[in-house]
Write a protein that binds this DNA or RNA. Structure first.
Lengths: 112, 112
DNA sequence: CCTATACTGAAGTACATGCTTCAGTATGAT
DNA sequence: ATCATACTGAAGCATGTACTTCAGTATAGG
């Protein structure tokens, strides 16, 4: 059985929604309240709250309540974990392709 | 309005499923037929075909039919595009954090 | 205390997803 | 021509997702 990281399920699923990617992108610029995050979004505050819960459960963001306001920020290590999964596979695929290419070149220099 | 790449929707959604991530991971090792991909998976061939269609529509894999067999491989550039989205945000968030940290250090060396 | 602000939760609804089974098509082997 | 192989497509079904509205809680300010 292959290793399987269920936290990647949640992270990729969270990032599959354009609203949530926009939230993540904006939080990379710094901490924002739920209200400020909701302002430019064309949906109810309740819907934004649901998106934020999904992002928080995935580990991509963390939040903290100060007074009656909840502030959110990204966890860049969580972003990094997802990025790493992709990077490892991509490099593996590219290396395989490079080896194949140089193999073809070595035997190709005699004919064609 | 922020820039919005709808192809990321499909790519992230495709990668949110563990079966599809396993398929991508195995294809990074080289081309495989639909049947070979299905072999270790605990579901019908039809279900595997549906996963492969989703991966292909997202651009993460490409396939080609030779005779009655369809062979699939990853598109490492598509993997790279998703990786880049994450990398750009992560770097942005980290830089912001670094600047904040050195700011705190500069004013922190007088007291505490 | 009273009111506004900033969420937070529950219920409902429309649509999407991840399977299943069964039937069908196209190709390779005899 | 016949039969097995390798998918491929359609229909059905259970569950999950992305909202909505409305009601509720908790804190800040006057």
């Amino acid at each position: 059985m292959l290793q399987y990281d269920s936290s990647l399920d949640a992270a990729f699923a969270a990032l599959a929604d354009p609203t949530r990617r926009e939230v993540v992108a904006r939080l990379c610029d710094g901490e924002l309240s739920v209200g400020k995050l909701a302002e430019p979004l064309d949906m109810s505050l309740s819907a934004v709250g649901q998106h934020l819960r999904i992002l928080e459960q995935s580990g991509l963001i963390v939040s903290e309540k100060r007074g009656r306001t909840r502030f959110c920020r990204v966890d860049h290590q969580a972003l990094s974990a997802v990025e790493s999964w992709l990077g490892e596979r991509r490099r593996h695929a590219e290396q395989r392709l490079d080896r194949l290419q140089s193999f073809v070149e070595r035997r190709g220099n005699s004919d064609d």
